[in-house]
């Protein structure tokens, strides 16, 4: 997702007119990025049996402590993703699930259970970013990139604040640059390695107040086409696909489909004018990158 901004800036600067962004992975075939990337924190995590999922579980537990968020709240996120995936013939998991099924799935790292976790799939995707001149010559609507922001989070010299993510920085920055507010957004594609990844992103991007994410996602808020904020209509990483560390690509492509009116007819958001795409990487709250892009419908 961060590559979107790099491509847009290269085109704006006249260094190129067409940029191709590709992401693909074959983790189910055992090909790819295995093992944790190097970090000064690794020895202090490995000595205690930390896992990637456990790191997200620690965020979830802290969020529950600070804000009263529940496992049921998190489950609503999976329920929405699974509903959307049921319309996607290419999704790995096409079965709809209930809140109860999420709660009763086996624990992985509590409070996260199996159905709070993304799938692992092979897969990939590509985005073509072009200059306005070329876009005008293509004869079909080309969504535009209004704004983009990136940042990193780290362990902050041992003063961790697990519930705050990079989105707290990229969200406001991207909205300010686009001249929009969260209320203007019709559809969001959010990287969803785990249910808690989505909940914290919704809060930090400003779709609700910090700590209100649990209440925000209830009552079908994330369901397309008529929820308050339809998300990940491809089914997301929670149900559709997640090729190792490249889960953001398909989310960005789905946002383009929504803005073009080419999403599944049952899930197409009516009059979709503005979409937000957000990705985070690595270990939420402790060391992570984050990127946000705001896209608009093309002419």
């Amino acid at each position: 997702m961060a590559a979107l901004g790099a491509a847009a800036r290269a085109i704006q600067a006249g260094r190129c007119r067409v940029a191709l962004i590709i992401h693909a992975g074959l983790p189910r075939q055992g090909v790819g990025l295995r093992g944790a990337p190097p970090s000064p924190m690794l020895p202090f995590e490995a000595a205690h049996g930390s896992t990637l999922i456990a790191q997200y579980a620690l965020v979830a537990r802290r969020h529950m402590y600070e804000y009263g968020t529940t496992r049921e709240d998190l489950a609503h996120i999976k329920v929405a993703a699974a509903y959307h995936a049921s319309f996607n013939p290419n999704a790995l998991l096409r079965n709809r699930v209930t809140v109860e099924e999420v709660l009763e799935s086996p624990p992985i790292a509590e409070p996260l259970h199996r159905l709070d976790c993304c799938v692992t799939t092979d897969g990939g995707g590509a985005l073509v970013v072009v200059s306005e001149e070329i876009a005008a010559s293509l004869g079909r609507p080309c969504p535009g990139i209004l704004a983009e922001a990136t940042t990193v989070r780290h362990w902050n010299n041992g003063k961790v604040d697990l519930t705050v993510t990079g989105a707290a920085r990229t969200g406001p920055e991207a909205f300010a640059a686009a001249g929009l507010t969260p209320g203007d957004i019709d559809y969001v594609s959010l990287y969803d390695s785990f249910t808690i990844t989505v909940l914290t992103a919704l809060e930090d991007l400003g779709f609700c107040a910090k700590g209100e994410g649990g209440r925000f996602v209830r009552d079908g808020a994330l369901h397309a086409p008529h929820g308050r904020l339809p998300f990940n209509t491809d089914g997301g990483g929670l149900a559709n696909n997640h090729p190792d560390r490249r889960g953001g690509m398909i989310r960005a492509i789905e946002a383009v489909r929504q803005l073009r009116g080419e999403a599944h007819p049952e899930l197409q958001v009516p009059d979709c004018e503005f979409a937000l795409v957000h990705g985070s990487g690595f270990s939420l709250g402790n060391r992570a990158s984050a990127a946000t892009a705001i896209l608009c419908r093309g002419m």
Partner: peptide, 8 residues
């Protein structure tokens, strides 16, 4: 500050 019971 936070905790998780790890099963996997």
């Amino acid at each position: 500050y936070s905790y998780t019971v790890v099963h996997r």
